[in-house]
Design a protein around this nucleic acid. Sequence first.
DNA 1: CGGAATCCAAAACGATACTG
DNA 2: CAGTATCGTTTTGGATTCCG
Lengths: 116, 116
Amino acid sequence: MSAEQCKVEEALGILVGKWKPVILLHLFSEGTLRFSELKRLMPGITQKMLTKQLRELEEEDIIERVVYPQVPPKVEYSISEYGKSLQSVLLTMNEWGTAHALRKEQLAKSQQKATS
Amino acid sequence: MSAEQCKVEEALGILVGKWKPVILLHLFSEGTLRFSELKRLMPGITQKMLTKQLRELEEEDIIERVVYPQVPPKVEYSISEYGKSLQSVLLTMNEWGTAHALRKEQLAKSQQKATS
DNA sequence: CGGAATCCAAAACGATACTG
DNA sequence: CAGTATCGTTTTGGATTCCG
């Protein structure tokens, strides 16, 4: 892993975005979700953002989008075959992130003691 | 790994930034580098950006900054003990990123054929 | 229901000049 | 040498309205 041919950004580029990891984790655990279900699972996200992030993930072939031609419309999202290869990356990051969050928490606690 | 307690952003937050992964990879492979050496290794980065990204990494305790009180100044950066725990994450992302870049390249090639 | 379009604020990034 | 400071541009995220 040399710095000259660093491809971390390739993975980073797909995961960055305030909501992308959460979207992916939901799809990984639920399998298939409608647009409205995703929205309900993420209070705070706007329709515009959800649409945008889903489009970007779709463009990278990470997720699949299926439109049912009916009224009212129904659109379902799921992880694509290729997208499944991302799970291990997500898992690694989540594990490290969990430990890091814990560490920060404990560090804050010990500093609280020191100043009290 | 449930979506409710997604800690991917914890890792993401540290890696995002146009130059952070490259900085980290350089420090991982070289061990210790001076500010000017880092800058030379990354043509295109501005002093301001390099300073900023280094500060952020330092604040997260990922890298260490040692100032030698002399004229002209000398400042050395290296991966901290804790920062080393990030290497596996970086490696995982780099591997996936490399494969992803290759895939995109080949996809582009096959599309080129199809339209020629 | 699942968007698209518009407008806006904030954050990231960058060029340049100056400094102990 | 290793930074600040200031300015401007670009990108990102968000609120709101409208549409088939």
